[in-house]
Design a protein around this nucleic acid. Structure first.
Lengths: 214, 214
DNA sequence: CCATTTACATATTGCCTACAAGGCAAATTG
DNA sequence: CAATTTGCCTTGTAGGCAATATGTAAATGG
């Protein structure tokens, strides 16, 4: 038990002996979750090494052991968030519904990601930490996200007559609207309500544009 | 001449004696511009006191003299950006055009703000520095921006049959789409192209929604 | 069973940051 | 003209931060 846990006076149930692999998996997950929650709660800048260690219930030495340093940890958080994003979108079967219904469900599913802590932490990590360095990893992230989005979009809206160029613009528009709604919520704090009318408008716009060729 | 200017080896033309008021105005403007440009170029986190002083061509002592400290300076930058935003929107006369034309011109004018360095710096200041403290100033900023936007919107689209509640939702949707496009550009760096198709889509959506009552 | 490896904690270090205090030159004011 | 005020520079300081080095306990493997 760490001193941190002791200080919190949480009853820590006696645990059976655990393998290194078990401990590694659990600790890494705790550390990554700590970063995501910390950025969402107090912002990237205040998410210091000590704060991450505190929230994860370990010391920074443990974080270093697992990740090497803060940069590598943040990259691991991006990876985890991307995987959740891709899985969330991939795990959708909308075949058989009409276009408007599929557009609505797609927007709902996508919004679930954009309003999540994982999106916020990814956004702030990219904006504050990686986005300026013009690192290859940065471009890679955008490409990977765009490809994951396009893959799902193409599958769900395969019957749309929209030409490719306009489909890409519509995808980008949808991402922008959702991320704009998310950043409004970010600046507004957790008290911001779900923007239902705006999401309905986005769904109607999508449905209309998807069935219109021009 | 500061050492910084001397190092840049810029020819500094001999100046007539200047009043304190002139110097104050010029120096404050230089410092605010330095913050805006620095955040846009290298991000909020790297925009240190020393970096601001360097870009402004003064020392931090001068910044302290004029603004008191970094917090006060950032608030002054927000104020300046807000004034430019409000002036930019107010300085629009669209009467006489049909709804679609006005929607298009409004979106163009608003986009000019959202893609500006002033918007980026305001966004990052609010996100990184003020947005977390749950300060009264933060809520004040959102309220002021929303009111300025609504004032212009109501004037330009006075003939729209849209009920108030839906007009507010449409305004928020428009802001979200524009800020989403802006944040996509932020993450993409200055090389990001103007999202022409997306802006056209926003204009069409606006025009349609504005003339539809439901 | 023991040597080795791994997971993690602790103490220390070096650097960066914003800020405060004092001083000088120029402008202002009575 | 002299006292005062203002604009700005220089220097020093305190605190925060990530990273490093070292040590201990637990798990592993031969």
């Amino acid at each position: 038990m760490t001193k941190a846990a002791a200080r919190l006076e949480l009853p820590v149930p006696p645990r059976a002996r655990r393998s290194h692999a078990e401990r590694t998996t659990e600790t890494r997950a705790k550390i990554i979750a700590a970063v995501v929650d910390s950025i969402a709660a107090i912002g990237f800048q205040r998410t210091t090494a000590q704060e991450i260690a505190r929230r994860a219930g370990v010391t920074w030495g443990a974080v270093q052991h697992h990740f090497g340093g803060k940069d590598e940890l943040l990259i691991a958080v991006l990876e985890e968030s991307f995987n959740r994003f891709a899985e969330r979108l991939d795990d959708v079967s909308l075949e058989g519904s009409d276009l408007a219904t599929r557009a609505a469900l797609f927007v709902d599913r996508a919004w679930a990601h954009f309003r999540s802590h994982h999106y916020r932490s990814s956004f702030e990590i990219l904006l504050n930490h990686l986005g300026r360095a013009a690192e290859p990893a940065d471009a890679d992230w955008r490409t990977r996200m765009a490809r994951a989005w396009d893959r799902v979009w193409t599958r769900i809206f395969a019957d749309s007559p929209l030409p490719r160029q306009q489909s890409l613009a519509l995808q980008h528009f949808t991402i922008s609207a959702l991320s704009g709604l998310a950043s409004t919520s970010m600046l507004g704090g957790t008290r911001a309500a779900t923007p239902k009318r705006q999401l309905e408008l986005l769904k109607r716009t999508l449905a209309r544009e998807l069935r219109t060729a021009r």
